[in-house]
């Protein structure tokens, strides 16, 4: 990319490419770089980014459930105060045996994010210390943020509905007709009939 606006981003990306041979990456837009790393190399990439490229700040660890591909994606979002840039480091892990490296000795507050991800997605972090229970209390069964966990079904089973709402009307058909749109597939299971 020879865009003048993203010159600095390109320089940093090139530095990363020089140091690591097996990573993919691109400049998404101004001040945002994206890297795809294998699970085994993520620790060295993160350490390099922190120590050499001034990405001192870990903003967040985010998780995506790619149910169809049978994978989880972890996204480490780093921020550099010096260059005012964001670095996304993405790794894919197997959904059947979800194990990821623990990084809370690099950034201590990563501990909190990892515990949350462990609870909500059921991903194990190797060597993570901390109570198993984080936000939920006495939770049994599938971690609730996984996409194959059906919250609606669970809520219907567990909680009570207000009586007198059985005849509530599904107005979405009318809205769709009026605005000439289509009901997306994922929304169809919420139809009342």
């Amino acid at each position: 990319m020879s865009n003048e606006k993203t010159q600095n981003e390109q320089i940093i990306l090139d530095k990363l490419f020089e140091s690591f041979s097996n990573i993919e990456g691109s400049v998404r837009r101004e001040r945002r770089i994206e890297l795809k790393v294998s699970k085994d190399h993520v620790l060295s990439v993160l350490l390099y980014a922190k120590e050499q490229l001034s990405f001192f700040h870990l903003s967040h660890i985010s998780c995506v459930d790619w149910l169809e591909d049978n994978q989880f994606e972890l996204i480490y979002i780093l921020w550099s105060h010096e260059t005012q840039m964001q670095l996304f480091v993405k790794i894919l892990i197997d959904r059947e045996k979800p194990v990821a490296p623990n990084i809370d000795y690099i950034w201590r507050h990563a501990n909190t994010y990892e515990r949350e991800i462990r609870e909500m997605y059921g991903i194990e972090f190797k060597g993570l210390v901390g109570e198993q229970e984080f936000i939920l209390e006495d939770w049994e069964g599938m971690p609730p943020m996984r996409r194959d966990f059906d919250t609606k079904e669970y809520a219907e089973e567990t909680f009570f509905d207000r009586p007198g709402r059985e005849d509530a009307k599904d107005v979405r058909e009318e809205i769709i007709e009026r605005s000439r749109e289509e009901l997306p597939d994922f929304a169809k299971k919420y139809s009342r009939d």
Binding site: L136, P144, F149, T151, K152, Y154, A155, E156, T158, F159, F160, D161, R162, R165
Partner: peptide, 16 residues
Amino acid sequence: TINGGMYWDSYNTINL
């Protein structure tokens, strides 16, 4: 508190 409001299908909040 009446019917769950916008959290009607949440796994973690009661409805009624």
